[in-house]
Simulated assay, not measured.
Amino acid sequence: MDPLSQFLTGPRAQAAFALRVVMDPPFAIDVQDGAALTVIVAVSGQAWIAVEGAAPRSLGLGQAATVRGPAPYLVTDTPGRPPTVVIGAGQSCRTPAGEHLELTFSQGMRTWGNSPDGGTVLLIGTYQSTAAAGQLVTSALPTLAVFTEEEIDAGLLTLLERELTHPRLGQESALDRVLDLLLLHLVRVCVDRTESRVPSWAAGTRDPVVARALALLHQEPEAPWTVAELALRSHVSRATMAARFRTAVGQPPMAYLTTWRLALAADRLASSTATTAVIAEEVGYSNAFAFSTAFSRVYGVSPSGYRRSQGHDARPAAAVPGS
C-alpha cells in the first residue's frame, strides 16, 4: 500500500470539513484553522490565495488549489487586502476585532459567506488532522498548488458541488469520498508535472524498481527489512537498489522505512488505545524501549506524550521525506 492509499483509508479521511463559500467583494479571509490540508475549487468568479513567503496565486473559474497546513493563508478578492474575516480552530468565524460572525455569515446548510448570491463561489474541503502519515502524503504537494481547468476532472467538481448543495441521506460520507477522490486526482496531477520532479516517495513511484521497494515497505512495515532483502525481492543488486532509491526518494531505504514506521505509529497512537508495546511490534520494533527512543528522537516527545496531545503539538518538520 502506497502512502496516498494509506492516507485515504485511515482515520484522517473521515468527516472532513466541507463547505460552499459565497462571497461578494470586498473580502479577505484569514484562515488560521491549523488544518493539515485544504482543497479549494472555484465554481464562480475569482479569488486570490496567498501563503507566507510566496506571491499570491489567482484561482479562476473551474480551477482548484491545495494548501498545506498548518500555517495560515489568505483568500481574498484582490491581492494585499487586509483581513476582514478570521477563521480559527474548529472553524470559528470572527472579525479581526473578535466579533463572532457565525450567524451573520450562515447562508444555509453547508453554505457560508457575506452574500447569499455572491459572485465568487468556492467549494472548500478541509482535512483537519495533522496525523503523521497524512503529512507524509502531502509532502508530494507544495505549500500552495494551483491546478488549471484542463488538469481537473470536471465530473468530480460537479459531484462535489451537487453533494454540497443538495443534502441527502449519507451526505457526510458521500462528501468524504468525493473529497478523497478529488485529492487523489490532484496529488496524481502534481506528481506527474515535470517541474515537480523532486526527491520524495511520490517521485520514487516513477522508478519501477523503487516503486516495488516502496510497495514492499508499505505493505510489511513490521518485517525485518534490509537493503539486500529489498534488492532480492525487487530483482536487482544491492548497489542498484541503494543508488536508485536514494536518487528517487532522497534518502536511503532504511531511513525511509524508519520514517514510515514512525508515521504509522503516530497514527496508531492518536487513533487507538493499543499499548506502546503493541504498536512498537506492529511497526517493526523489537521492544517498546527501542521504539520509544526512536519516536522521541524524531517527534521530540515520547509516544505517551504524543498520544496525549493527539498529534496537535508534535509535528516533526524533519520527519517527512521530500517536504
Rank of each mutant, 00 (worst) to 15 (best):
V41F: 09
G88S: 06
Y306L: 13
S58M: 12
P208K: 04
S286Y: 00
D33T: 06
F17Y: 12
V210F: 03
R238T: 15
T130K: 13
A174K: 08
A223C: 00
R188M: 02
F147V: 04
W260M: 10
Q63H: 04
V298F: 03
T158A: 14
D77P: 06
P3C: 06
Y256S: 10
V283W: 02
S106L: 09
Q251T: 07
H312E: 14
T138L: 09
E163W: 03
Q32S: 13
A239D: 13
T258C: 10
S196H: 14
V39S: 15
P167M: 11
P72M: 11
Q135S: 14
T226D: 05
T258Y: 01
S272L: 04
S304C: 02
Q171L: 09
A54P: 00
D313I: 08
P224Y: 01
Q63Y: 00
E52A: 15
A266R: 02
G284D: 05
T165H: 03
A290I: 04
E282N: 07
R168D: 06
S271F: 13
L214S: 07
A64P: 01
T38Y: 00
A211W: 01
E163R: 13
T226C: 10
S302W: 02
T38Q: 13
T247R: 15
A50D: 09
H218M: 05
P3Y: 01
R246K: 14
S286P: 00
A248H: 04
M1I: 06
R268W: 03
Q32M: 07
G118P: 08
T84W: 01
V31G: 00
I40M: 04
E163Q: 14
S237D: 10
L184H: 12
L257E: 08
P72I: 11
A202I: 02
G119V: 04
L157Y: 01
A255V: 10
S139N: 06
A223E: 02
L74K: 05
V198D: 04
A131D: 12
L257S: 08
H185W: 03
A215T: 10
V51E: 05
R244C: 09
A317F: 03
T165V: 07
A231Y: 00
